[in-house]
Design a protein around this nucleic acid. Structure first.
Length: 253
DNA sequence: GTTCTAGAAC
DNA sequence: GTTCTAGAAC
């Protein structure tokens, strides 16, 4: 197990050639971003999209969401736009993979931790299940709980950037003292809002919730498949129309 | 961010 | 006695 290095993401983002990274780390890259496999995925699918360190941005400007939003605003908008564009591509890759591996699609979340542990801003793109062996403790769970507030959706950040300057500057503070207590809140299922006493109990419940969604979605897909296969083809419809006309002509209708 | 493990919780 | 959490890591 590699030693935890808080600057590992920055070292990836500074590579002149991201394709030199191992395939086990790198998913894709563009001129402005790279997308990596989260080393400790907290959902079935979990990727990180990072902006590359390219002038005029410096590594220290890109330390985290707070430093990006604190800097030049049009540069911040540009960085967030790069992350959003590539986040959307990653989302569609995940959707394809969901169909291939599990034969149904479920939701995908995109967002930032209010107070990240690793340096260099990273957009989390993860499937909405929170079912994974690396999901081990309350802090892990609450950091992705979509209603807790610690996980800040990409669309929220995009709205801050469009909002009036006083709201933008309030939301951009991202004070650890405001957000860290959220990680200690009770273990509540993000789907049904029930509380759980321990992580093992919550994890078993989340697995059940995901399996229930799988069953429901697969039944929906099966229904659609049947409906489509029973639908008359264009050719059959044309033939019906022709035979109707023949009947009308022969006066037997 | 993780691993490890003491001792709390049951 | 076993399960589980939560704080230390030099």
């Amino acid at each position: 197990m590699p030693l935890p290095s808080p600057t590992i993401l920055r070292s990836y983002a500074q590579r002149p050639d991201p394709s030199s990274l191992p395939a086990s780390v790198l998913l894709t890259h563009t001129d402005h971003t790279l997308t990596i496999f989260d080393a400790y995925p907290k959902s079935i699918f979990h990727f990180l999209v990072l902006p590359r360190v390219i002038a005029p941005s410096t590594a220290s400007d890109l330390t985290n969401l707070r430093t990006v939003l604190k800097g030049d605003k049009s540069r911040a908008q540009e960085v967030i736009r790069w992350l959003a564009e590539d986040g959307m591509k990653v989302r569609s890759m995940i959707q394809d993979e969901m169909l291939k591996r599990y034969h149904f699609k479920w939701n995908i979340w995109m967002g930032f931790h209010a107070v990240p542990s690793m340096e260099h801003i990273h957009l989390h793109v993860l499937s909405a299940d929170l079912c994974s062996p690396a999901m081990k403790n309350k802090k892990h769970y609450n950091s992705f709980h979509p209603k807790r507030g610690f996980f800040i959706s990409l669309s929220d950040v995009q709205e801050w950037l469009e909002a009036d300057p006083s709201y933008f500057s309030t939301m951009s503070q991202l004070k650890p003292s405001q957000y860290e207590p959220l990680l200690k809140e009770p273990l509540e299922c993000w789907r049904c809002n029930n509380d759980f006493k321990t992580m093992p109990l919550l994890k078993a419940h989340l697995q059940g919730e995901w399996e229930a969604e799988a069953k429901l979605e697969k039944a929906k897909l099966e229904k659609k498949r049947k409906r489509v296969s029973e639908e008359p083809t264009d050719k059959a419809v044309e033939e019906d129309e022709r035979s109707e006309k023949r009947l009308a002509k022969s006066g037997l209708d």
